[in-house]
Design a protein around this nucleic acid. Structure first.
Lengths: 310, 310
DNA sequence: ATCGATCATGCACCTACTGTGCACGGTTCT
DNA sequence: AGAACCGTGCACAGTAGGTGCATGATCGAT
């Protein structure tokens, strides 16, 4: 209901270049340029100035973008309330989430919605958390499932988003079948202090999660190998190259001769998974229903004993 | 910046029929019908139901319209603030007002704006107060000058509008040149109690103003003739048919052998003239400047002595 | 009961907005 | 200097959204 050109401007305010805005919104760069030009004409304001080989927001432009946060939130709130008041449904629904969430949480959610609401067009996009926020602003998706990171620039109080905690996903340890601990059910991080560890490259979200888990118990792990994908890491462990941490949500196929153990003791590392939506839209019946379904899925997975993955 | 279809829905909520909405917005009835249908499709809500030979808002529709008041106001506020922050001007500006205001206040305002802001497209529409409010909602005009009536359904606290008092326009008495009081400068209503009066038909806004003036001083005037236009009333008085009340803003040509006297004594009847705009937009520099110009015009007219009209 | 008036809507048609693809000029980094 | 990148103008195309007329439905008046 808000003019799509204003939405485009907001996306531009986040990524700073016309090209990136085009990529995020799905338009061509020419279209973004034309939209921004038209927006300035309609409003009678100069919103952009040339800056080097790019363009930059003017003070007026920044002011407008900042103020539009409450406008967007107001509209989302109104639409959600009207939806609830009229017990009606929207026609399309976009979901976004990072890999694990997309596979374990969003896929069943989309399937459930597809059966309970046959005429709702559901679209799922896999994207990392930062891009999920971009996609929310661009209105490409309506709900995102992400890992809450302390390093995130989006706080709880960002006027553009509203977040609710979905679940705390515990990290398990995976070790090779041949490992002396393979028959145990639980283990502490201290017991594994001298093991060769497998994790992601420094700088990734998983790596910071990894180090945080060990600093919490005062252990310095020896990092032997690096793997980006869970599948790769599991394969490394299965090959006896070392041990690793695996979120409980990440599935483990039985063929992979790897054992998953729960962590006990002082340090019980978890990653917090939250759902994010545009501020104001959280009350929408569709989003509320989605959150409930997500909770059910998450609890069902978490209740499963770690040995089930063997 | 708000979707024009939502604006159309708001206009429909006020006048109740597709045809009237088309007339107010400037669209054709087919276009209004298509817009409302499209709006329901996009939002996934049923906003209208057939009702006899017309259509009626559903509960959801009424809810949406009511809630959109704050949304519109929020946008107007944001735009006005951005305008002020950036010291920029809009490209078009619509003015509305009733007959006297249009001639005496809006015409000079439009002329001034045309000279101070050459590239601003100014449009003036003459319309009675009720229609002015409709035109404000329809975004055909941005500022309206109207007579405040106690019978108006639009209170000071209407979430859609914002009003500021422009001036209190005193009512003068007009009498024939041959009248014994013609050489005086002031008169009281009591002195004219037995005169034959000329006013508008019962039910008009002027008529209620007329009776209110006399009930304030406890006099019951004898209504001899009825006239709708000021010009007609003045002609009646000039022909010696009676006396009448004339707002000071209404001009008096010297050729009309009629004398204008100020009213003194307990009852000093006035009509309150206010400016109205969409809520939130009152801070816009263009509207602020317009209000100042209107004040200047009004004061200049009011300072003129009543004899000047002879 | 019938006829006319009124109201919303569907349809055919057309205009004009808006997006795409490509080429170009300007700017920065190496 | 040359290459890479960024934004923008232009020709073209598709489609959203406008008008005008005809139609069906409903209400009021004769």
């Amino acid at each position: 209901m808000i003019d799509p050109r204003l939405v485009t401007l907001r996306v531009f305010a986040r990524c700073g270049t016309v090209g990136a805005t085009a990529e995020l919104t799905g338009y061509s760069p020419s279209a973004v340029s034309a939209q921004l030009r038209e927006l300035q004409r309609v409003l009678g304001m100069q919103l952009l100035v040339k800056d080097g080989r790019g363009v930059r927001l003017t003070a007026t432009g920044r002011f407008l973008v900042a103020g539009s946060d409450t406008l967007i939130a107001e509209w989302e709130r109104l639409r959600a309330a009207a939806m609830e008041a009229g017990d009606q449904v929207q026609s399309s629904f976009g979901l976004g989430g990072f890999s694990t969430a997309a596979a374990q949480l969003l896929a069943p959610l989309a399937a459930t919605l597809r059966s309970t609401r046959p005429l709702l067009k559901v679209q799922v996009l896999e994207a990392d958390p930062a891009r999920c926020f971009d996609l929310l602003v661009a209105e490409r998706i309506d709900l995102a499932v992400i890992v809450a990171m302390q390093s995130d620039t989006f706080g709880e109080d960002d006027p553009r988003f509203e977040q609710t905690v979905l679940l705390d996903d515990p990290l398990d340890v995976i070790i090779p079948c041949e490992h002396p601990f393979a028959s145990r059910e639980t283990v502490t991080l201290e017991e594994l202090a001298s093991e060769p560890w497998i994790t992601d490259a420094a700088g990734s979200t998983y790596h910071s999660l990894f180090t945080a888990a060990f600093t919490a118990v005062g252990v310095t792990p020896r990092i032997a190998h690096e793997a980006v994908e869970w599948e790769t890491q599991i394969a490394f462990v299965g090959a006896g190259l070392g041990v690793g941490l695996l979120p409980r949500l990440a599935p483990l196929r039985s063929a992979e001769n790897v054992v998953r153990l729960r962590i006990t003791g002082r340090g019980k590392p978890t990653r917090r998974i939250v759902a994010a939506a545009r501020r104001g839209s959280i009350g929408s019946p569709l989003i509320q229903e989605s959150l409930e379904i997500l909770q059910v899925s998450a609890n069902r997975i978490l209740r499963a004993r770690p040995e089930d993955g063997l």
